[in-house]
Structures are given as C-alpha cells and as structure tokens.
C-alpha cells in the first residue's frame, strides 16, 4: 500500500510538469506529436527510475560533498545508454528527438528526485518513486502531445480523427501554441486543486459540526 502511495503521488499530487513546474524545459519542444512525446516520456521514465535505483544503492558510500557531480555522472551515463539504444533500434525517432534526448541529463526533476528521495530511501521505494514521477511526466507529455497533434494536424498517432474537412490549426504544432496550451493546462490543474481543497474544507467543516 505504501509503495502504491509513493508511486501515485507522482501522477497527480506532485505531477512533475503541472504541479512542480520542474523540468518543463526542453521536453516540451518534442510534444508536437503523440509519438515523439511518448518516446521522450518513456526515455525520461527509464532514466529517472534507473538513476533513483543507482543513487539509492550507493547512497551510503557517496560523500555528501561530492554527491551532485556523482549524480550528474550517473544520469549522463544512463542517458547515453538510452541514446545508443534508440540510435541503434529506432534511428528515425532518434533523429527527431535529436539534442533533446541528450538534454535529459539536465532535467531538474531527475536530479531533484535523486537528492530528495533516492539519497534517503531504500532501493525498492526509490524505484517506485522514480516509476511514479516518470509515469506522471510521461502521462503529461502524452496528454500535451495528443492535444497539440489533434488540433494542429487533426490526427492522433498519424490516424486522422476529424476527417479531411478539418482545417488544422497549425499554431498548435508550432512553439507559440505549445506555450499557450501549457499555460492553460497549468491553470486548469490549479483550478482543479482549488476545487479539491474547497471540497475538503467543506467536508471537514461538516464533520466538525
């Protein structure tokens, strides 16, 4: 049950993109199609989980003074593995993600999870923390990708949804549309959080009365 909580908090309560606004950086550039967003999301899921495991295994033998360089080297190594695997088996995708794949190294979320969670917890909880955060991240990426692809090209995963009569709103695929969409999504997440807090306060007030 506890492991499930660790996993679950990454998906909504502390969603890395909408809630913590961490590492929204370069990942958003590749959300113009669902496929790219999914590939990026899964790569990050893998890197964050693997790195959490590595960091928590070595948490007792890393001197706190040099911990950040150690974490960065570990992340960079895992990212290189992902790069090489994609380059070998999915060269087209690798080309489309280009430098954004390498830039996973500097995603604040990965370093933050290593520092906040993996450095203080055992291997199994750290793994679940990584999986939850990664899943939250990948889910958000796919959601953004789906909206952008649907309105910007009228397709999902290349399959036409609206039919030929739909005149695509090209702006959604272009960077400005990405910015505006993410702004609106952050706002709607905030709004949802507000309603939940209100409902909770109401329920609490009623039980007291």
């Amino acid at each position: 049950m506890k492991l499930w909580d660790i996993f679950y908090k990454g998906i909504f309560e502390q969603n890395p993109i909408f809630r913590l606004a961490l590492s929204l950086c370069p990942a958003l550039a590749v959300t113009s199609t669902v496929m790219n967003a999914l590939a990026m999301g899964l790569s990050v899921l893998f890197v964050i989980t693997a790195n959490n495991v590595v960091v928590s295994i070595f948490r007792k033998c890393v001197n706190p003074k040099v911990r950040v360089p150690v974490y960065i080297t570990s992340i960079a190594t895992i990212v290189t593995v992902v790069q090489l695997v994609l380059q070998a088996f999915l060269p087209v995708l690798y080309k489309e993600l280009s430098i954004y794949l390498a830039l996973i190294v500097v995603f604040a979320i990965i370093l933050a999870r290593a520092e906040v969670f993996a450095a203080k917890n055992g291997v199994i909880p750290s793994m679940f923390d990584g999986l939850g955060m990664g899943a939250g991240f990948a889910g958000a990426m796919v959601l953004i990708g789906a909206i952008r692809e649907l309105f910007g090209a009228g397709t999902i995963l290349g399959v036409s949804i609206f039919g030929a009569a739909y005149n695509p709103a090209l702006i959604m695929i272009l960077p400005p549309g990405g910015f505006i969409l993410i702004g609106l999504m952050i706002a709607s997440f905030n709004l949802m959080g507000e309603y939940q807090a209100k409902a909770k306060a109401k329920a609490a007030g009623r039980s007291e009365a």
Partner: peptide, 23 residues
C-alpha cells in the same frame, strides 16, 4: 489576473504571444 492563471500560467501564455510575434 484570474487566480488560477496567476504565476506560471499567465507567464506561459505571455511567452506564447512573445513567440508568436517572433514568428
């Protein structure tokens, strides 16, 4: 600014408009 848009939300929309003008 509406409460839920405050902070990052409106900043992103602003950046989108800036990006649009750079386009």
């Amino acid at each position: 600014v509406p409460k839920s848009l405050q902070g990052l939300g409106i900043a992103f929309i602003l950046a989108g408009m800036l990006a649009l003008s750079f386009f």
